[in-house]
Amino acid sequence: MKIDQSGKVSLPTPTRSDASRSSSTASQSASTQESAGAAQENVTLNPIAAQLGQTDQTGSDNSVFDSDRVASLRQAISEGRFTVRADNIADKLISSVQDLLSQ
């Protein structure tokens, strides 16, 4: 590809081998789409993934959401009173990873 002084882009002229490659690729793509439409695929979920899906569905009943707490945190952040305690975050992250690894 070249850009001349006028700012116009000129693309190289495709050669015979380029044209045959593109038509070959197009025919392969079309045959792949046809076979994908005709074939049915089986999907198997990992048991852990299935458990996570069940947790998501039942989690709405057991989840705790304190809108007052969220509002107070939002206000503290906007007023600059909220401080991040990296040591607490690190401790909870390590604990979470340990729990995940023990399962």
Rank of each mutant, 00 (worst) to 15 (best):
T15M: 05
G7L: 00
T25W: 07
A39S: 09
A50P: 00
I94G: 06
L93A: 12
A71Y: 01
T58G: 07
K2R: 12
E41A: 15
L100C: 07
V9Y: 03
G37S: 07
T55I: 11
I89H: 03
S35F: 01
Q103D: 09
S72N: 12
S95V: 07
S78V: 00
S24Q: 13
G7T: 03
A36T: 07
Q98A: 11
I94W: 09
D18E: 09
S96V: 01
R21L: 10
Q54C: 06
S96I: 01
A71S: 14
P47S: 08
D4Y: 05
A19V: 08
Q54V: 06
V84C: 03
I94N: 02
S35Y: 07
D66F: 02
A38T: 10
G53H: 07
S31N: 13
N62E: 12
R74G: 01
K2D: 03
G53L: 06
G53P: 00
V64I: 15
T55P: 01
S102T: 14
S24F: 06
A39P: 01
P47E: 09
F65L: 13
V9C: 04
A49F: 01
R74C: 02
V43K: 05
K2G: 15
N88W: 01
T58P: 05
K8E: 14
D91K: 11
G7V: 05
A49E: 11
Q33R: 12
D66C: 01
S27M: 09
A90T: 15
T58L: 15
K8S: 03
F65Y: 08
D66Y: 03
V9I: 14
K92T: 13
G7E: 03
D56S: 09
I89Q: 02
S27D: 10
G59Q: 11
S63R: 11
F82T: 00
L11H: 06
R16G: 07
D99I: 01
I77S: 00
E41K: 10
Q57S: 10
S20V: 14
A30I: 07
S60N: 04
S6I: 09
T83I: 08
G37L: 00
F82A: 12
M1K: 06
I77D: 00
S6L: 08
A50G: 05
D68S: 11
S6T: 06
N46F: 03
Q54L: 05
Q57A: 05
L73G: 08
L101Y: 13
S67Y: 09
A38I: 08
L73F: 10
M1W: 04
I3F: 10
T32S: 10
G80Q: 02
S102H: 03
V43G: 03
S31H: 15
V70M: 05
Q75V: 04
A26V: 14
S67C: 07
A90V: 13
T13G: 00
I48Y: 13
V43M: 02
S17C: 14
D66V: 15
